[in-house]
Design a binder for these strands. Sequence first.
DNA 1: TGATAAACGGTCCATTCCATATGGTACCCT
DNA 2: AGGGTACCATATGGAATGGACCGTTTATCA
Lengths: 202, 202
Amino acid sequence: MLSTPRLSPTSYLVLGLLARDGPSTPYALKRQVAATLGHFWSFPHALLYAEPPRLVKLGLATETQELQGRRRRTFTITPAGAGAVQQWLRRPSHDSTELRDPGLLQLYFADLGSAETPRIIIREQLAIHRAKLKEYEERASSQRSVRGTAGAVGQLEEWHGHSLRMGTLYERAAVAFWEEMASETADDGAAPGDRRDEPLIA
Amino acid sequence: MLSTPRLSPTSYLVLGLLARDGPSTPYALKRQVAATLGHFWSFPHALLYAEPPRLVKLGLATETQELQGRRRRTFTITPAGAGAVQQWLRRPSHDSTELRDPGLLQLYFADLGSAETPRIIIREQLAIHRAKLKEYEERASSQRSVRGTAGAVGQLEEWHGHSLRMGTLYERAAVAFWEEMASETADDGAAPGDRRDEPLIA
DNA sequence: TGATAAACGGTCCATTCCATATGGTACCCT
DNA sequence: AGGGTACCATATGGAATGGACCGTTTATCA
């Protein structure tokens, strides 16, 4: 019970989804993830097929399988699994964040290029993240308007908004990051007022 | 020449370090990385031993080996390798960022816990990132004072400062992120004008 | 001085991850 | 019924991961 052989982030992802959405097939998990966390933390679908059986072996979930047709396997969280989630939520994650950003890597080596290289890289990354941020925010606002008309929408909508907010917040941080880089690098003819609203068009 | 079978971020990391620091052993690469990018992008050392030979096979580096003692292998970038780096620096990285943050994952499932769970998680993450930020900034300032006394210090110091700035900027973004989360979740006195951010509690 | 420990430098291995290919199932349309 | 296209799932080969392990050099101290 206490000596679970160390659960991975993937384990908790699956357990969490099973806890929140109820019994699910791996395919359902895959779609959930793709629509939410998948935007910035890629969980390959093969993983989401491989993880639930592991959880079953640990007694944290159970499995039922269709006997005809697609023989879909549906996984259900057990009390032990739910307990593991609760325990995890109470235990602060000291494992440090992995930020694998190709743009950051380029910036790190920007001094190997020409004098304009840093500015070019920064401008590019800024454009990319602003575009993504805009996309999130637009989707969020359309979401809101839908909700406005429909009164009490199901939990689905609710967590959808939840996940969108995560993406939004992350992209907002990224934009802030690159803007800071831009201002630090705006040596020569630096920005006069505020160039924050440069058109995003490539 | 153009049809290199797709170089990975790891490839460019190694090429970039070879370009900047000159001929290096895998161990030297490992130490460089650990002191800089490794803070937020873990490259396991085994990778840094495996990658250079691959680059040799592609003609982007050459290898020499000590014949006695530890039989260290030293790798040197070739003109083709240097060209690949330059080309890469000019090509914007559209591959999206991977942000693998256990804290973020917990936050995503915070509604499965008790009412205080979100606040606890946010407070924890904020503390963690603030501590790291402080550490970076302190090291940066001690760095500066050393440089102040020594006049023209070598390039080593320069890129060291460079890398520190990266860590610093990243942590600053993280702190901003979690502060934003904190302010959004400071419900009890909920946001007056804007209810978009309904409390996460189930 | 010699013995021992500690740090250095590197390799190897079991496991997991990951992307892609591929195979089966259900539904839709005519 | 036939065939096209989503949908759903697994298989597979290569890479990444992280730790154990091993030889070399330097430090410590009796």
